[in-house]
Design a binder for these strands. Structure first.
Length: 107
DNA sequence: GATGTGACTGACC
DNA sequence: TGGTCAGCCACAT
């Protein structure tokens, strides 16, 4: 199967454990192109076509929900995270370092 | 088929 | 210390 960068991104995002979050850069780095973080963001843009992709668990390196505006409703992202036990205040994931899931380390 | 754009990041001035 | 620039790749026009 000829996996594209996108599909690889989705595959990794799907592996993010419940209640954990990761960053665009971490995923990009795992895929071997840490400079392609933008592509990861673009992949999330298309994530709507992939119901199994928990895009809400992907935030920027600061733990900020930069992409929330791309969800059905701006609060959906926060709500989803909150339902998983991830505290989000003002678009920022609290205890981000503790909840951070590094695919390069974990996989 | 070529060009522009995008939910980011790191380096440079 | 803070703003700007370049780089990556797929998709839309």
């Amino acid at each position: 199967m000829q996996t594209t960068f996108f599909e690889d991104v989705y595959a990794v995002v799907k592996l993010i454990p419940y209640g954990k979050v990761t960053s665009y850069g971490a995923i990009a780095a795992y895929l071997g192109s840490k400079q392609s973080a933008r592509m990861v963001g673009w992949a999330m843009n298309q994530a709507h076509s992939y119901p199994d992709v928990p895009a809400h668990r992907v935030v920027n390196k600061l733990g900020r929900l930069t992409g929330k505006h791309h969800f059905a409703t701006p609060n959906q992202m926060q709500e989803l995270l909150a339902s998983e036990g991830v505290l989000v205040i003002e678009d920022t994931v609290q205890d981000f370092e503790k909840l951070f899931w590094n695919p390069t380390t974990e996989l």
